[in-house]
Amino acid sequence: MTERVYTKEEWIRGLEGLREDYTLFVPVKDGDFHAFMPMNGEKVPDFDFQNTRLSPKSVIYPRSERLFEYILGNADPEANILKESSKDFSPRAIVGIRPCDAQAFQIVRRNFDNPEYRDPWWVRHFESTTLVGLGCNEPCSTCFCTAVGGGPFHEDGLDALVFDLGERYLIKGLTDKGEAFLAKMNGGKPADEAVLKAAEDLTASASQKITSSPPTDPLKGKKINDLFNAPFWEEVAFGCLNCGTCTYLCPTCWCFDVQDEVLGKEGDRIRNWDSCMFPLFTLHGSGHNPRDKKVQRVRQRFMHKLKYYVDKYDNGVQCSGCGRCVRYCPVNIDIRDVCERMNNY
């Protein structure tokens, strides 16, 4: 495992040098908040951030993505055939991804890359992406990564992890992808004992700063029907606006909708993010909607994350504890509170 130390200037120069080998997605200050954007001459990385408003899931799984294209007609022998859209699967790296967001990709991967189903676009994008994490020195009060199997310096799901030690960065290679990234990066020098000790201390102190920890272990033992029929859903759902803020900001929400758009004789098949909060999500062609009511949709979101997923994959909850939905839900529906209610029911 490579462990190297960079001054902050060296680090930025090193990243600049990597732009030939990778498309680098870095946190960029965009108005009031940060967003992952490709690093080019104009977009300057700013690693002084808590987390990006939108999770980096869109780097691998865009908000809207063209899957196929086709032409309509009878004369052309090529007509009426779906052709896969060409895509750029050249190497990318998300630099500065928080450990929770990296862990989220592992959660999503169980859905998109399993023996039963393999989503060709998600998998290829994921495989071409190197995740270079930045540990959280100062986790937010809404963070609860430690309650869902992660932590501010959690390494699972990352290819390399960066420790911000004030003047310097320590970077650790964790996988082959991460080692390859480090091997291409100029500058830096090997880490000495003192630096490694400082990183260890930082990890310990950051974990202690996590103040929210809704227990998630009891969920597995609960009966689905009991939770499903629990009386608290009406109360939880009362304020819900059924907007897509929680699902679109969530790094672990993966649902999508496929739409055909035809213009003249040319058509595209596009996949867009969808949200279980929208009535349209479950509307059948017949007009029947099995989740017609708000309370059913709210219950679905939490049951999926905290129960169905738990039972199906036996690998924790479908939540990485990033706290985005807690902070940005317009009506303050707090997943930590819902989790407590489910635990205690």
């Binding site: 865009p62 993505e65 063209r66 213009l263 040319e266 595209d268 596009i270």
Partner: peptide, 8 residues
């Protein structure tokens, strides 16, 4: 004017 969707 809607043209071909500008998406990824």
């Amino acid at each position: 004017i809607k043209k071909r969707a500008e998406v990824a």
